[in-house]
Deep mutational scan, measured.
Amino acid sequence: ALNRGDKVRIKRTESYWYGDVGTVASVEKSGILYPVIVRFDRVNYNGFSGSASGVNTNNFAENELELVQAAA
């Protein structure tokens, strides 16, 4: 299972961040479909780089994520 702070690569092909590595911000335990919230260094097309207006978190299912580096 994934944990907060883990570095993960995104495998959801239609995602803006496909192939990117993000950090797990939190994992919901309530049984929702996309329980893993991942935070990225770059914002998506809703904002400009360096601006706070873009979105830099997204929810994924565990099977859409590949663990790159476990949290220390």
Score class of each variant (00 low, 15 high):
Val43Ile: 12
Asn44Glu: 14
Thr23Glu: 14
Gly19Leu: 07
Lys7Met: 12
Pro35Tyr: 12
Val24Tyr: 00
Leu33Arg: 12
Ser26Arg: 12
Asn59Lys: 06
Val55Arg: 04
Ala52His: 09
Asp20Gln: 05
Glu14Ser: 10
Leu2Gly: 02
Thr23Asp: 05
Asn3Cys: 14
Ser26Ile: 07
Tyr18Gly: 02
Gln69Thr: 12
Ser49Tyr: 11
Thr13Phe: 11
Leu2Asn: 02
Tyr18Phe: 08
Asn63Phe: 09
Ile37Ser: 09
Val55Ser: 08
Gly54Pro: 06
Asn44Ala: 05
Lys7Leu: 10
Glu66Trp: 03
Tyr18Trp: 06
Tyr45Ser: 15
Ile10Cys: 15
Ile10Gln: 01
Glu66Pro: 02
Tyr34Thr: 07
Thr23Cys: 14
Gly47Ile: 05
Arg4Thr: 13
Asn46Val: 05
Ala70Trp: 06
Tyr34Trp: 08
Ser51Asn: 13
Ala72Asn: 12
Asn58Ala: 15
Glu66Asn: 00
Phe40Cys: 13
Glu14Pro: 06
Val38Trp: 00
Arg9Thr: 07
Asn59Asp: 06
Gly19His: 05
Thr13Tyr: 08
Ser49His: 07
Arg9Cys: 14
Tyr45Leu: 15
Asp41Lys: 05
Glu62Thr: 11
Val8Thr: 00
Ala1Gly: 12
Val8Lys: 00
Ala71Leu: 08
Tyr34Glu: 07
Ala52Glu: 13
Val36Cys: 07
Gly50Leu: 03
Ser49Thr: 14
Ser51Lys: 03
Ser15Trp: 01
Asn58Ser: 15
Glu64His: 02
Ala25Met: 14
Phe48Leu: 14
Phe40Leu: 04
Glu28Lys: 11
Ala71Val: 11
Val38Ser: 00
Val8Asp: 03
Val36Lys: 00
Gly5Thr: 02
Lys11Asp: 04
Val36Met: 02
Ser51Pro: 10
Arg9Ala: 03
Val8Pro: 02
Thr57Lys: 05
Asn63Arg: 08
Ala72Gln: 10
Gly22Asn: 01
Ala25Cys: 15
Val21Ser: 02
Arg42Ile: 08
Arg42Ala: 10
Val36Leu: 03
Ser51Ile: 09
Glu28Asp: 12
Glu28Asn: 09
Arg42Tyr: 07
Asn58Tyr: 06
Ser30Pro: 12
Ala71Met: 11
Thr57Trp: 12
Ile10Asp: 03
Ala1His: 14
Leu2Lys: 02
Leu2Trp: 04
Val68Gly: 00
Asn44Ser: 04
Ser30Cys: 12
Asn58His: 13
Arg42Thr: 14
Tyr18His: 06
Tyr16His: 05
Ala52Trp: 07
Ala25Gln: 14
Ala52Asn: 11
Phe60Ile: 00
Arg4Gln: 14
Leu33Ser: 09
Val68Met: 05
Tyr16Pro: 05
Asn56Pro: 03
Phe60Asn: 01
